[in-house]
């Protein structure tokens, strides 16, 4: 859930208010901060962070930022490559399908093995 809009970073551009798919925020007025008006509608999709050019938003996953060993502020934009540090942010995206299928094969093979083990132990009994 979105928990923080950092006053020292936010430039009141209201981009987060517009991009939120679930209308969690109300417009900043007179240079103030946007208001987290309907936090119960936040689905923790992190997309407001992605669209915040100032890294002024933090979407928490239950744990406050201060309790984490490494501060994840700005990680979403950096990981998506929207901060400009990475020239080719999708260079490994082609691996998606192969990795999905590999995982399926792993779980399928594990299950087959478990079943044959079960049969073995039944025989012993």
């Amino acid at each position: 859930m979105i928990t923080e809009i950092l006053p020292d970073r936010c430039n009141s551009c209201n981009a987060c208010v517009v991009v939120c798919p679930d209308h969690v925020l109300d417009m900043a007025k007179d240079g103030q901060l946007p208001v987290i008006a309907r936090p119960d509608q936040c689905q923790t999709c992190f997309l407001c962070e992605l669209y915040c050019s100032e890294d002024a938003i933090y979407v928490a996953v239950d744990v406050p930022r201060s309790e984490l060993k490494n501060d994840p502020l700005g990680n979403i934009r950096r990981d998506y490559g929207w901060d400009g540090h990475e020239e080719d942010p999708l260079k490994n995206f082609w691996q998606l399908g192969g990795l999905l299928r590999e995982g399926v094969m792993i779980s399928s093979a594990r299950h087959a093995l478990q079943q044959s083990d079960d049969k073995e132990s039944e025989k012993k009994i």
């Binding site: 979407v59 239950d62 994840p72 990680n75 990981d79 998506y80």
Partner: peptide, 10 residues
């Protein structure tokens, strides 16, 4: 990236 955040931020 968001999947990683679900763990990292927890």
């Amino acid at each position: 990236p968001a999947t990683v955040a679900a763990f990292e931020r927890r």
